[in-house]
Write a protein that binds this DNA or RNA. Structure first.
Lengths: 184, 184
DNA sequence: GATTCTATTTATAACTA
DNA sequence: TTAGTTATAAATAGAAT
């Protein structure tokens, strides 16, 4: 793909072939990494050079094991794990758990904000604990939203009793649908 | 890598991300094939899309099984593990966590923008601090939205075309309703 | 949302040292 | 042969449809 368009067939010249192999292998790995960064995907690339017994692997052997373990057609890789040092395996595991935890934390936070917004929109007031959870930044916005909703709907807040159990109902399909249609 | 150089960070807009994912996944597979043809190599690529349980596989499931089995039965993966120092391992781990954190920051920013947009759509005005947070780019849009909402909100049925306007101009922000129902 | 269409960025084949 | 350089082919981000 450069000075000349190259046909997709075996490169006869061995030195040219080797140079091409390394260049292309490297950019293949790079692109796998780029894809992971851009789209939060897990990708794994194995490349066996001509006659190589050992493949070049992306992202790393440790990650490859983890990723391949998920692959349906791959028999269990337990024996692999046994060959890894216990320490490294634990570290790998910890890393993944932390990432998972972070992901959950993020999702929970997102859901929480949406729930409290919903509550505010229905005229409910937020207690101190709830406000603290979503952070001081949201306080003004939530209050404004609540007032505004009350005005537009022209329904007395009394329709939503001051009871603070709105949260108990949130998170299910119906309440989020309400939120969606209300906001869209 | 086109109209604009793109940073290697998680793409926040979900539709853009999906499109990018498919394009890049396809070209990744294509390049794996090209490499095989040019250099007579055996390559295998597995790509798990976000949340996908089954990966996209190159060259085929059958070939993948063959190639992966070869990898699985490779004698000593231990050798690799030992060459990887504890330091390298930790650096890799830290890097990953940083990337994760960065992604979360992006998502948080998105949530803020959505929230402030909701506020503007309901007629609330944004204070200087809030405007500064969502960035100068949104300022004009928000103002425009606020004006329109104020005018239109007296006519509830007219809210729909307005929503369309938002969708066409503010990328991921429009995902609010979708996301709300999707995460329910 | 999917496709198609550019404008640009990347990747890279051939060249050069 | 291994590294840079450069001209050209590919890939692709954002826009248009």
């Amino acid at each position: 793909m450069a000075r000349k368009k190259v046909a997709l067939r075996y490169i006869r010249n061995s030195s040219t072939r080797r140079v091409t192999f390394e260049k292309r292998r490297n950019s293949l790995m790079k692109k796998a990494g780029d894809l992971g960064a851009l789209c939060n995907t897990k990708a794994c690339v194995l490349v066996y050079g001509e006659g190589a017994s050992m493949p070049d692997v992306f992202p790393s052997h440790a990650d490859a094991v983890a990723i391949l373990s998920k692959y349906k057609y791959m028999p269990d890789l337990v024996q692999f794990k046994n060959t890894m040092s216990q320490e490294e395996f634990l570290i790998e595991r910890i890393t993944k758990l932390q990432e998972e935890a972070n992901m959950f934390r993020c999702e929970r936070e997102d859901r929480e904000i949406r729930i409290l917004l919903h509550k505010a929109m229905l005229g409910g007031s937020l207690d101190a604990h709830e406000v603290a959870r979503v952070g001081p930044k949201l306080e003004v916005i939530l209050k404004n939203l609540g007032d505004r909703i009350t005005k537009i709907s022209k329904k007395p807040p009394a329709l939503q009793p001051h009871a603070t159990y709105v949260t108990n109902n949130i998170g299910d399909v119906s309440s989020t649908s309400t939120e969606a249609s209300g906001l869209a």
